[in-house]
Amino acid sequence: MHSEPQTVGALRTTVGAAATIQGVYGTRGNLELLACDERDGLWVFWFNSDAPGSAPSGGVQPGRWSEGLAFARGMRFVQAQILQSALGPEHLEVLALDARGTLQSWYWAPEAGFRRRATDVGQGVRRFAAEHDDGVLRVVVDADSISTHVSDATGYPVRSWRQRAATPWERASLELGAHAHETLLRAGVDEREITPGTARSARSTRDGGTDELTWRGTDGVLRHVGVPWGA
């Protein structure tokens, strides 16, 4: 196992699966993790990926997670995803599905923090999956039907959305977590300690290439472990 499992946000009342990406801060690229609060808003946590012995960054020791930042208060969310943006530069993109079925679009900029955009991605949404490529966001949405909503970088940070039919690969992207669950089992995590449906994975370049695995334990606590690529 690449690293020992760590709890994330143990003092926060988060629910469901978390979403993780590799960010751009620090010498190795930090990790950003997004989770839904149990009742109100979202939590973002970040992991200091710098080498052991490096100075703390933002009050967080190397190899440790932050205590978390709350935002989007006043709404309850059921699914959220965070992506590193190529724009800004160093901005973050957030897609967040609220309990009413509205898929909201947010972004983070160093000078402004998290801001919700005026235009939502869709209504009546049950689940979604998103990817970011050179400023273009593609969001696969499961609502009355499965479709893909695309936004290019025109007018950024404002985004508008055009809808088209989802490809078979895009439809498959909605089935989240199978790879992560299998990798956790190979890494020695007891299946009885994984809340079903909460395993997620993201790839980072730290330490030569790492699968960043997150899951919610049966005790309700989020956990993270890094596993070498191919392990």
Rank of each mutant, 00 (worst) to 15 (best):
L103P: 08
L103R: 15
Q104I: 07
Q104N: 07
Q104M: 12
S105W: 07
S105T: 14
S105H: 09
W106R: 01
W106Y: 06
W106F: 05
W106M: 05
W106C: 06
W108K: 08
W108A: 10
A109S: 14
A109V: 03
A109D: 06
A109H: 06
P110C: 02
P110G: 02
A112T: 09
A112K: 06
G113R: 05
G113A: 05
G113C: 01
G113I: 03
F114Q: 10
F114D: 09
F114V: 08
F114K: 01
R115I: 10
R115T: 07
R116H: 01
R116Q: 14
R117E: 06
R117K: 07
A118Q: 04
D120A: 15
D120Q: 15
G122T: 07
G122H: 11
Q123G: 10
Q123R: 11
Q123N: 11
Q123H: 08
G124K: 02
G124M: 08
V125W: 13
R126E: 15
R126G: 14
R127E: 10
R127M: 14
R127G: 11
F128D: 12
F128Q: 05
A129M: 03
A129N: 05
A129G: 03
A130W: 02
E131D: 02
E131Y: 08
E131F: 01
E131I: 08
E131T: 11
E131W: 01
H132C: 01
D133H: 08
D134G: 12
G135S: 07
V136T: 14
L137Y: 03
L137G: 05
R138C: 00
R138V: 01
R138I: 09
R138N: 01
V139C: 12
V139T: 03
V139P: 12
V140N: 11
V140T: 15
V141P: 09
V141K: 09
D142F: 11
A143V: 14
A143L: 10
D144V: 15
S145N: 08
I146W: 02
S147Y: 13
S147Q: 14
S147W: 06
T148I: 12
T148L: 00
H149C: 06
H149I: 02
D152A: 02
A153R: 11
A153K: 00
A153H: 14
T154F: 03
T154G: 05
G155W: 00
G155M: 00
Y156L: 09
